[in-house]
Amino acid sequence: MKNKKISKILIGTNNPGKLREIANLLPKKVKVFSTKDFNLKSPNETGKTFKSNALIKAKYFSKKTNLICLSDDSGLEIDVLKKKPGIYSARWGGKKSDFNKAMQRVYKELDKKDKEWKKKKVSARFICALVIYWPNRKKIYSLGKVSGKISKTKKGKNGFGYDPIFIPNGHKRTFAEMRKSYKYKIDHRAKAFKKIKRFF
């Protein structure tokens, strides 16, 4: 049976940066709803993986609104920090998910691990798990990754989250220094979305 294309969707996030980026990936003809339209708070993310946390959000928001929901869980893994912050990426910014605090913590943890880290390549990757959840409980998963390194200093004003300290492989600039329209084409979210594009 041919999949019926999705014509309206709820983007299951309360993060304005993610909302903007996911909405930009969707075809223009798709009607987009946000959690703000329904005044919904986010559920507790109790999963142990990006995929399970994305599912918790997609299922929760879909049940609350009876809409098809697309949710994302994403974060930064730094190899020398044993892949931390990982699924706790937002939580490193404290209760308010302040990413300036989170980035300071990354630098603090790297200093603790190795005072000379700025002279070395600190390999890292961004990971994004996307889940589409239908009210009839059908669900689709997708994973996207982009590898790179940690910048020695914060650079750039574009983007959100850890974008100012992440330089993707093959580039000299951080995600936050890139034009948003360019970053949206090459990042982990774009890679994950390519795999589920056919549903729209």
Rank of each mutant, 00 (worst) to 15 (best):
residue 64 K to R: 12
residue 64 K to N: 10
residue 64 K to H: 09
residue 64 K to M: 14
residue 65 T to E: 13
residue 65 T to W: 10
residue 65 T to F: 12
residue 65 T to N: 11
residue 66 N to A: 13
residue 66 N to E: 15
residue 66 N to Y: 09
residue 67 L to S: 12
residue 67 L to W: 10
residue 67 L to V: 13
residue 67 L to I: 11
residue 67 L to T: 11
residue 67 L to E: 15
residue 68 I to R: 13
residue 68 I to V: 15
residue 69 C to Q: 08
residue 69 C to L: 14
residue 69 C to K: 06
residue 70 L to V: 11
residue 70 L to I: 15
residue 70 L to W: 12
residue 70 L to F: 13
residue 70 L to S: 12
residue 71 S to T: 07
residue 71 S to Y: 11
residue 71 S to H: 09
residue 71 S to L: 15
residue 72 D to M: 08
residue 72 D to C: 02
residue 73 D to F: 09
residue 73 D to Q: 06
residue 73 D to E: 11
residue 74 S to F: 02
residue 75 G to P: 06
residue 75 G to T: 02
residue 75 G to N: 09
residue 75 G to F: 10
residue 76 L to G: 01
residue 76 L to W: 01
residue 76 L to K: 02
residue 76 L to I: 07
residue 77 E to D: 08
residue 77 E to H: 04
residue 77 E to S: 10
residue 77 E to Q: 13
residue 78 I to C: 05
residue 78 I to G: 02
residue 78 I to W: 00
residue 78 I to T: 00
residue 78 I to N: 00
residue 79 D to Q: 02
residue 79 D to S: 06
residue 79 D to K: 15
residue 79 D to H: 07
residue 80 V to G: 03
residue 80 V to W: 08
residue 80 V to Y: 00
residue 80 V to M: 07
residue 80 V to K: 06
residue 81 L to R: 09
residue 81 L to A: 04
residue 81 L to G: 11
residue 82 K to L: 07
residue 82 K to N: 14
residue 82 K to Y: 06
residue 83 K to Y: 13
residue 83 K to W: 06
residue 84 K to M: 10
residue 84 K to I: 02
residue 85 P to Q: 07
residue 85 P to C: 03
residue 86 G to Q: 05
residue 86 G to F: 09
residue 86 G to A: 07
residue 86 G to C: 10
residue 86 G to N: 01
residue 88 Y to S: 04
residue 88 Y to W: 10
residue 88 Y to E: 11
residue 88 Y to G: 01
residue 89 S to C: 07
residue 89 S to W: 06
residue 89 S to V: 08
residue 90 A to T: 08
residue 90 A to Y: 00
residue 90 A to W: 01
residue 91 R to Y: 05
residue 91 R to G: 02
residue 91 R to W: 02
residue 92 W to Q: 01
residue 92 W to M: 09
residue 92 W to F: 14
residue 93 G to C: 03
residue 93 G to D: 03
residue 93 G to R: 00
residue 93 G to K: 05
residue 93 G to V: 03
residue 93 G to A: 06
residue 94 G to H: 00
residue 95 K to Y: 04
residue 95 K to T: 01
residue 96 K to R: 08
residue 96 K to P: 00
residue 96 K to G: 03
residue 96 K to Y: 05
residue 97 S to F: 13
residue 97 S to N: 15
residue 97 S to V: 05
residue 97 S to R: 12
